[in-house]
Nucleic acid binder design. Structure first.
Lengths: 361, 361
DNA sequence: TGAGCACGTGAATCCCTCC
DNA sequence: CGGAGGGATTCACGTGCTC
């Protein structure tokens, strides 16, 4: 079953995504990428430590009365999505902990078969300003087929090449959308939640073929359309906010097919493996209670459970405490502190090397 | 409400977790860590390319007929968990894409308030042997409180220290459980999904205090108990498989508790004794009439006898006045205001530190 | 011209005690 | 329980200006 010849592509449909999808024939698109409202349920204003106000998502389109009404909305658009998706097509949905569990459950309930959950690890997330939780540094994408036996597209080799000849993993490190890529209108961001093109690039490259039809029911400023055009895929966007539509059409008009040099920019920056001192404590390379000392054995510091050191009443990280004790502005704790090993003093940096050897590919 | 004194801890309850939890009083544990069955839906055996069989999860306890029965099971144990958890306690649940969306939805439906979803990024995952999907290189944990207004424990400063002075993020890079840590019975793995101690270490260090009671309803080989014992937390495990119980008890018996000195962790400023600015004036650390200024010397404020400041006709506390002058919603006067000392500007916070050193036990 | 610093900002469920 | 008030709290980048 393939009705993609029956529909017009590379165009934007104005209106509500459920109503617009309802007008399309069964089994007419190869992939659906959806970035639905997250239903963030934010409270009052939030201020950064220096006093500025965080420009939060407070749009009406993100507001739902109850979890139940969000679920009904999710089921309704997923049902239409499932109908217009070809039997061997796949769907991608992105979300955060606010909504992704509802979405994943609805996907399974509607009969989709989850192939992977993918973690977009943000290299530059917004911090947690009040120190109340872990920094929310990722978003989750779900990739699903129509059913267990569907023969979906997965360009395994392309992904492996993109990842320096290692299998592409389920966690992707990518920066958030900022700088020149971030679309503006009258000097302010055109859309509060614009996704980076690199994210769509990887999704489309992995799971579609050239000429495939990609539909995005929550088109926004058209990242999906722009990347589809650049990768030689056909696209259909659905959006109801006129402000976003204008920006999206202009953007896609200007998008150029990718050449080789542009492709390399999209590739993974292979980041330096960083190891925190605390990781050595957590993983048992160094036990809490161990005594560290400097080469001249002037100070004896006890390693504590959280990776801090204590010498008498002075406490701090390996770097801070080293600096404090020496009266220096800074100190490299990795080379300053030593532990007894094999009858002699060894810098703790050697433990870090050991850890890296054992745990990095 | 706190019934933790009414229960015996550091022990294993043999039996079904729902039945065993039902025997415990309301509000008696500070944290619940749960690693429920994953409902893996594996279609037959999985073989490596060279023909050897992958030892996947295929035990009886991991079979659920339908998503519906899994949901009923999840709701049933979550409901008991919620009842025995103290109002300010938190729950952690770990899972993969097979079950975590059901769990997250059930948590929200039962009234839990999600605080973070955490990604355990495996530094050495099992590759995808068939090359049909992305390498499944992570698992997801959900951290939730009893409700939106609960005052849960989060050792922010300890986590920041553990992560080399940067906020701990929602993505945790930790190796899988292997090597000597992986428990064996008759030469094969004692449990198919044994979690690494480092994972539990971070969870317990972040969200409990020494002496807190941690309950694990799917105890398995007792990773939660072993780490709780090491970190000076009390524990309760529930497990029905005699094979696992034997291994778990032996393992926890061998685990060594850390010294109290090693258990001490970095405290946030909020947890430290408070000093009123007026006290510094009363005790002569700062004389009335002293002129304070901000770093850019935009404002000159005079210290008054009652510990308030005045700039022209504006008066108020060090915090209020700083906020008023900057037009900011709030201001930390301790770091905003400076006084001349030794020829240069010093924040009045240093005076507070001096006072604390001289006057605290 | 280049280095360096100040400043702005991003899908955020973001304080706690006392009266 | 609501309001008031003390005072704790941020990381990675891009841009644009200064020296």
């Amino acid at each position: 079953m393939d009705n993609s010849a029956a529909i017009a592509t590379d165009r934007l449909l104005r209106g509500d995504c459920i109503a617009e999808m309802a007008k399309l024939p069964d089994a007419c698109v190869d992939m659906i990428f959806a970035d639905p409202p997250y239903n963030l349920q934010l409270g009052g204003d939030l201020f950064r430590p220096e006093g500025s106000r965080v420009d939060a998502v407070d749009n009406d389109w993100d507001k739902f009365d109850t979890l139940g009404s969000y679920d009904r909305f999710t089921k309704a658009w997923l049902r239409e999505a499932r109908r217009i998706l070809k039997p061997n097509g796949t769907i991608w949905v992105i979300g955060s902990y606010h909504n992704i569990f509802r979405v994943g459950t609805a996907l399974q309930d509607e009969g989709f078969w989850i192939l992977n959950d993918i973690i977009w690890r943000k290299s530059n997330p917004m911090p947690n300003f009040k120190g109340t939780r872990f920094t929310n540094a990722h978003e989750t994408l779900i990739w699903a087929s129509q059913g267990e036996d569907a023969r979906y597209t997965f360009n395994y080799k392309a992904m492996k090449t993109l990842n320096d000849e290692l299998q592409m993993r389920s966690d992707w490190v990518l920066p958030i959308c900022a700088g020149p890529e971030r679309l503006k209108r009258n000097g302010t961001k055109a859309h509060p939640t614009q996704k980076p093109e690199a994210l769509l690039y990887r999704v489309l490259l992995a799971c579609t073929k050239p000429g495939d039809v990609v539909l995005d029911p929550f088109f926004g400023t058209g990242t999906t359309g722009a990347v589809a055009k650049r990768l030689g895929r056909r696209w259909i966007g659905i959006e109801r906010e006129e402000d976003y539509i204008e920006v999206a059409l202009e953007r896609i008009e200007a998008a150029l097919p990718l050449d080789e040099s542009a492709l390399t920019i999209m590739q993974t920056a292979r980041q330096q493996p960083k190891v925190a001192f605390g990781t050595l404590v957590e993983t048992g390379y160094l036990d809490p209670g161990t005594v560290l000392t400097d080469t001249k054995r002037r100070w004896q510091a006890v390693v504590r459970a959280d990776g801090s050191l204590s010498v008498g009443t002075d406490t701090g990280s390996i770097h801070k405490l080293g600096a404090t004790l020496q009266g220096a502005p800074s100190c490299n704790g990795w080379t300053f502190w030593h532990h007894e090993a094999g009858g002699k003093l060894q810098p703790i940096d050697t433990l870090r090397q050991t850890y890296l050897l054992a745990n990095e590919p």
